[in-house]
Amino acid sequence: MSPYRAGESLIIADPWVRGYKYLEAMQQLALIPDMVDVRENSSVGDRICGWIGKYIDTINAELRACLEACHGCFHSELRRPIQIWATPLSEEFGIDGFCNILLDPTVILIDVGRTSPDDWLSIVVHEYAHAHIGSPGHDIRFFEVLSHLCLGLGLPPPVWQPDIEDYLKNWPYCPSRANPLSFWMGYV
């Protein structure tokens, strides 16, 4: 379940190189490469690559624990193969995470810098619901799976309402941080 290309060494001594290669791999998993915020040729990009090279395994382990908690809400025969990875996402898309259902296994990318670590499970739950139904929409099937996950994991479940599509786009609600890149540079 590594994001690195086949044959590449997973052990890269230089944190900056490791971080840069990791971000390149995340771009390949995104719906379009520009969704991953790399900021090449800048001191910000250099700092982000170095930080990711040092700490990404720890962050991804926390996200995998959230993913496993979601899997635990379903019988094993109903669980879809899903990978989850942390990566900075471009501000222009305005999202905390997304699910790429076009890949097999399905891939969830989460920008953990956009919210508090206490809210990471909520973002994973939302994207897991998309992965579970294999659809990007926020319809009745999404509502049912999201409700099931929220109840199973102790999160407040959504309440059915007429404008359900718009309502579910941000459920469970997680306040955003003012500067998501500060996390990725090691300031938070």
Score class of each variant (00 low, 15 high):
R18Y: 07
T87C: 14
S2M: 01
Y173N: 09
R47H: 00
F93Y: 15
H71D: 11
I32W: 01
S42F: 00
L153Y: 11
H126I: 01
H148D: 03
H71T: 03
F183Y: 13
P15E: 01
V145R: 11
P81Q: 08
L102D: 12
K54A: 13
P180L: 10
R47L: 10
H130M: 08
R79M: 05
L102A: 14
V125H: 04
G7L: 02
C70S: 07
P180E: 06
E77A: 13
P175C: 04
G186L: 00
A61Y: 00
I48P: 03
R141V: 03
I164H: 13
D14V: 10
P158W: 08
N41W: 12
H126M: 07
S9G: 00
L109V: 10
S42I: 08
F183E: 03
I32L: 01
I32R: 12
T87W: 01
L67A: 05
C99T: 15
P136A: 11
S116I: 02
K54G: 09
Y187V: 02
D163R: 15
Y187L: 10
P3S: 05
E68W: 04
F143S: 02
I123W: 10
P156Y: 06
S43F: 00
R47D: 11
P81G: 07
I82T: 05
L63E: 04
F143W: 13
S90F: 06
D57S: 12
P157D: 14
S135Q: 14
C70D: 07
I82M: 04
H126N: 06
R177V: 05
H130D: 07
T115Q: 11
C150S: 12
D96L: 12
A69I: 08
G154S: 08
I32D: 10
G53Y: 02
H75Q: 15
G50A: 11
T106A: 14
G19F: 04
N41Q: 15
N60R: 13
E68S: 10
L67I: 09
I95S: 03
G152V: 08
T87P: 08
G137Q: 13
S122F: 00
D57L: 14
